[in-house]
């Protein structure tokens, strides 16, 4: 469990609010009420944990989720030649309620980020995310774009990054299998807090931008605020 090893950060390198908020509040996703009740981790529960982790790692339902270029390679990964289903993780579900893993295959832009956050929030815990391609790491070739979120991790936590533009299907298979391995070993995602959260408009700090938009947006409408200057 990752909670056994505290997440080590180099304080000096935390320079921005954006990065700062990433480091806080990482919790243990596998914590069960049962274990809370027992207080510690008795033998039977650790065995049960192990079994559960094995189950979670062995069978995963993917979210049928296509964004950009990488989704084409993702389709190939599901299809005949590469057949992700061999590893027990090749059944895409259209509804986020029934999915365990979300492969984020492409560039996230300002208009889509709140929607992706919403889809992620709709998935039941424990949920895992595979970031596919350079765009989900940093914005990739489009990082300079005025509209591009600099990596999916700005919005949702990512467990496995598969680099490439786009990664080959083999790479995605490797990434997914690595994820399965990590889940089976009980390693949770190290990052859980996101700087770009959905929040109600009235909760935003009143600055020039908020003042300008005040007559267009309802107080209780959900919004996402982008601090492009502050992004990595």
């Amino acid at each position: 469990m990752s909670s056994d090893q505290p997440f080590i950060t180099d304080e000096s390198r935390v320079v921005t609010q954006t990065r700062d908020s990433r480091m806080e509040g990482q919790g243990d996703r596998f914590n069960s009420r049962l274990r809370e009740a027992f207080g510690s981790s008795p033998f039977i529960l650790t065995k049960f944990d192990k079994f559960l982790n094995w189950c979670r790692g062995s069978s995963m339902f993917m979210l049928q989720f296509g964004i950009a270029c990488c989704s084409i390679e993702m389709m190939h990964t599901y299809a005949v030649k590469h057949d992700l289903d061999r590893f027990g993780s090749g059944v895409p579900r259209a509804s986020p309620r029934q999915a365990d893993v979300m492969i984020v295959p492409g560039t996230i832009v300002s208009k889509f980020a709140p929607r992706m956050k919403r889809v992620y929030d709709q998935m039941p815990e424990p949920k895992f995310v595979v970031g596919m391609g350079s765009c989900t790491i940093s914005g990739g070739p489009f990082q300079e774009g005025y509209n591009v979120i600099k990596g999916a991790e700005e919005v949702i936590p990512i467990d496995i990054h598969v680099p490439g533009c786009p990664p080959r299907p083999e790479a995605l298979v490797y990434g997914v299998v690595k994820l399965q391995e990590r889940i089976a070993n009980g390693e949770a995602a190290p990052v859980t807090v996101k700087p770009y959260e959905l929040e109600e408009f009235s909760d935003l700090e009143r600055d020039e931008l908020v003042e300008t938009l005040a007559d267009q947006i309802d107080e209780d409408e959900l919004v996402m605020r982008y601090n492009f200057a502050d992004s990595p």
Binding site: W54, S58, S59, M60, G88, D100, P126
Partner: peptide, 9 residues
């Protein structure tokens, strides 16, 4: 695996 995994969600 699938049965337990789904029920444990």
């Amino acid at each position: 695996a699938a049965a337990v995994q789904l029920l444990a969600k």
